[in-house]
Amino acid sequence: MSEVPSNANEGCPGVGSENAGKTSGCAGCPNQKSCASGEKPPPDVDIPKIQDRFRHIKHKILILSGKGGVGKSTMTANLARALAADPTKQVAILDIDICGPSQPRMMGVEGEQVHQSADGWTPVSVADNLTVMSIAFLLGDKNDAVIWRGARKNGMIKQFLKDVDWGEVDYLLIDTPPGTSDEHISVVQFLLQAGPLDGALIVSTPQEISLLDVRKEVSFCRKTNVPILGVVENMAKFVCPNCSHTTLLFPSSTGGAETMCKEGGLDLLAQLPLEPALAEALDKGEDFFEKHPDSALVKSFLSLADKIKNNLGKQ
């Protein structure tokens, strides 16, 4: 594994520091031993394997959020369905939220199992052009807690990247846990070494308490050289299904994501409305796009997918 970027998170003293590998923030880091000894870590023999897996994936997108509960996984699942609405495109989801994997439930494949062949793990099929891979498929009981230290999380993420047989994929969405923790550093390191990373979508809600953590996520991306594709403001408003009256459920005291994006030079790609029917559909593992094709939320997701495709096309 390559060196951890200096100050990749607040607990990392930096590989050039005399405290490298010796502080509490170094616990669980796979480079702790080499940093503490001053030795340069040897080349990671698994990087060529990851490169080989990812050479057939056109676009790799991280889905990030600074805070839990903002709807990051919900956004990932429905953006995947929006991208897959084009039957000529192959879409995949990689769920690396190790401690809280929710994609199998949301995508209606919770009871499925991952099959292993000579070519590696086969991701679970949701539709003809949509697949998903998650640690939830590997747990004996869906209620089992995943109580792992950083090194084991890193190993699991690497195994997902090098052992899953994705095949030809146009868009790979990587659903990450909240924050800027071990999982984020690991997946960014591996992906940047394996080839170009298209960038990250950052999910927020309007209130300032959420935006405080989003700004940390923006800082993480800039320090680790991950391009930011844009910001999605989730639960921006509630549209009554009976009278169409619009209500701001989470009023912002600072102008919400729109003001934050203007101040930080970021693109606000979408302001998604809150729709209770979506939560019900995801709980049941149903396709919201199929059940509510004319809803404002479906149209918003399809518009978001078009923006992302156009922006990636320009890149």
Rank of each mutant, 00 (worst) to 15 (best):
M1C: 04
V4Q: 03
S6Y: 06
N9K: 05
N9R: 12
G14D: 09
S24T: 15
P30E: 01
C35F: 15
S37G: 05
E39P: 05
E39F: 09
K40Y: 09
P42V: 10
P42W: 07
P43C: 05
P43I: 12
D46P: 03
I47D: 00
I47Y: 00
K49N: 12
I50S: 02
I50V: 15
Q51F: 01
D52Y: 11
D52L: 12
F54E: 03
H59L: 01
I61H: 00
I63F: 01
G66W: 00
G66N: 06
G69S: 11
G69I: 10
V70S: 11
S73M: 14
S73A: 09
N78P: 09
L79F: 13
A80G: 08
A82G: 07
K89A: 09
Q90E: 09
Q90I: 03
A92H: 02
L94R: 06
D95H: 03
D95I: 02
G100P: 06
S102V: 12
G108K: 07
E110H: 07
E112P: 09
H115A: 14
A118Y: 11
W121L: 00
W121K: 01
V124P: 05
S125H: 11
V126A: 06
V126R: 06
K142N: 10
G150P: 08
R152P: 05
R152M: 15
N154Q: 13
K158Y: 07
Q159L: 02
Q159W: 02
F160G: 01
K162M: 06
D163L: 00
D163A: 01
D163R: 00
Y171Q: 03
Y171A: 08
D182N: 08
I185P: 06
V187D: 02
Q189T: 06
F190C: 12
G195E: 10
T205H: 05
S210H: 03
V214L: 13
S219L: 13
R222D: 15
K223H: 11
K223W: 07
T224R: 07
M235S: 14
V239T: 15
C240N: 06
N242K: 10
S253I: 05
E258G: 05
C261L: 08
E263W: 08
G264S: 14
D267T: 15
Q271T: 14
L272T: 00
P273V: 00
L274E: 01
A277I: 04
E280F: 11
E280V: 14
F289H: 02
K291Q: 13
S295L: 02
A296T: 12
L297I: 14
K299T: 11
K299H: 15
S300I: 03
L302A: 11
D306M: 14
I308N: 10
N310G: 08
N311A: 14
G313Y: 10
